[in-house]
Design a protein around this nucleic acid. Structure first.
Lengths: 135, 135
DNA sequence: TCATACTGTAACAAAAACAATTACAGTACA
DNA sequence: TGTACTGTAATTGTTTTTGTTACAGTATGA
């Protein structure tokens, strides 16, 4: 994961958690995260698809949490932005080599195990708990 | 980690483990991994710097494991190739925002914790154990 | 009903990361 | 001294990621 999406998503969610019930505009959020508002809207689009956020269009619109911060686990945030296994991508090895032929299936297991493990660990903290660390 | 380096390094090490004591050329390894030999030499350069592999130059040269496969943990392979935390990169948020001001330090802790967990988990398997799965 | 303030999304451009390739100097063996 | 290697730099090409602009669509409320 060589990108900024987890950080961005968690930042957005933390902001929303800090003002429960109110609808924050993408402009406002962009000001805090310090990126373009269109990027925020893209990321929010994803969080919506994952059921973490809901939005209202039109004047006075914006986004808010789709459920209480105490019901959002950091693993959900991770799953929302994950694209590639934590250990990276596989090669396309030579099938004529005994090692090359098998390595990807063993690697695959390792990749899946590690991803599961990361998810498990991130299930130990909710957004609420994360937000409580702020003062 | 949106790259192929872990897969490549583990493939190389598995090959070396499969022929303990012999020095494999970068050309041979490249044939199995199915990438350019220069890439293999680069990756081996890194594995050497991490103390996992040793090489001989000149005719008849090549690379071999620097220690027994039973003494190489997969966490060492991960550490050898890791460049970015498993959860990705941080943003540079707005310090004027109370959330923005603090989010990176909390994120940082999360990142470090997750990386430690991954390392811990990968310390549960040695290269020998990984290789034993092949038949 | 019209100005205003939003979202949603597409299209495009720019920057950064990653992978592939070529080339060649240096080293060691036989 | 020819051959077969490593080590490494330089370069290019490709993919991923980020940033930006633009604008149609939607809701509000004066």
């Amino acid at each position: 994961m060589n990108n900024v999406r987890f950080a961005t998503s968690l930042h957005i969610l933390t902001l929303l958690a800090s003002m429960p019930g109110s609808y924050l505009s993408s402009d406002f959020i962009a000001g805090s995260v310090n990126v373009n508002a269109a990027m925020i809207r893209k990321e929010i689009g994803n969080l919506k698809a994952c059921g973490l956020v809901e939005s209202k269009e039109g004047k006075g619109g914006g986004s808010t949490l789709a459920k209480p911060a105490s019901a959002i686990w950091l693993s959900e945030v991770y799953k929302a932005v994950r694209q590639v296994p934590v250990l990276g991508k596989p090669n396309t090895p030579n099938p004529k080599c005994p090692i090359g032929r098998q390595v990807n299936s063993h690697l695959q297991i390792l990749y899946t195990d590690m991803d599961d493990y990361v998810v498990e660990k991130l299930s130990e903290m909710t957004l609420e708990e994360f937000f409580k660390k702020f003062n």
